[in-house]
Design a protein around this nucleic acid. Structure first.
Length: 268
DNA sequence: ATGCCGTATGATATACGA
């Protein structure tokens, strides 16, 4: 029985409810993880998702900023979310899926403009978050349970995860210090990058295109900021991965597009 | 990596995104 998991930074779930419903109707993932929902829990459009077949959920939202959610056709157990860097700012939510797979949905801090932690507290926060997540993963993975980690990690780690490696070396999201810390986080859990599992490292791959470009499609100055990682025992069961570039061209789109991964949890 | 667009808010400017 295959399992399809999707992740999407939606940049306001209320404004883009119709786009999310369209995505769910077209792709029918078992589970959808959202980031930047920008809605307190009472304002989250849970009913619309339940009517679309996604009756199970865990949501953690706040006013204006951040906010994450897991919406699922399958029952969710042991749901919750952790506080990171001492801030209860709704950047993480988790659940256990049928079959015992632990799913973690992250919204890692963007980090502001200036890539210097001494000058820019937002960048310092991002680096501290990555260190804390690395240490947490190291502990969490001791149990050896199958896990999936998804989200807007706000870092494009590989050279071809950005349109120009050279021109982005000083740009927050692709600086060496961020890439180093994200890689440490990945290695701490032996995570397999489920999308790069199917796409060679020398092929350009993006999940985000700035709103500021006049023509995002023609300029194609994207970055791969959204990721799906799986633990090694799930890697053998990976069947398919897709980044839905077309969603960037929908009416009033998010600047991120969905990343969708299908795996067979029964195959080691 | 410049650009100057998009979202949310006790708003008509400001913070934030990356």
């Amino acid at each position: 029985m295959a399992l399809t998991v999707a992740t999407w930074n939606i940049n306001s779930v209320r404004l883009r409810l119709d786009l999310v419903l369209r995505f769910l109707a077209e792709q029918r993932p078992d589970v959808l993880c959202l980031q930047e929902t920008k809605a307190i829990d009472d304002a989250f459009p849970a009913k619309a998702f339940a009517e679309a077949g996604y009756r199970h959920r865990i949501i953690r939202g706040m006013k204006s900023y951040n906010g994450v959610a897991i919406l699922s056709k399958l029952p969710l157990e042991n749901v919750g979310g952790h506080v990171w860097c001492g801030k209860d700012d709704c950047r993480h939510v988790f659940a256990t899926l049928p079959g015992g797979i632990e799913l973690h949905n992250f919204y890692i801090p963007a980090g502001g403009d200036v890539p210097d932690p001494d000058e820019n507290p937002k960048f310092a926060h991002k680096l501290a978050f990555l260190d804390e997540a690395r240490d947490w993963i190291r502990r969490e993975r001791q149990g050896g349970r199958p896990m999936i980690l998804v989200g807007d990690l706000n870092i494009a780690p590989l050279e071809h995860d950005v349109w120009s490696h050279k021109q982005l070396l000083d740009v927050v999201s692709h600086t060496p210090i961020e890439v180093e810390k994200l890689t440490a986080m990945q290695e701490a859990g032996d995570w397999v990058d489920a999308v790069r599992h199917f796409v060679p490292a020398d092929r350009k791959l993006y999940s985000w295109w700035s709103y500021r470009a006049r023509d995002w499609d023609a300029a194609d100055k994207g970055r791969r900021l959204d990721h799906v990682w799986v633990t090694p025992q799930l890697a053998g069961g990976l069947r398919e991965a897709a980044i839905l570039r077309a969603a960037r061209g929908w009416t009033q789109p998010s600047d991120h597009v969905p990343v969708v991964v299908t795996l067979d949890p029964g195959v080691a």
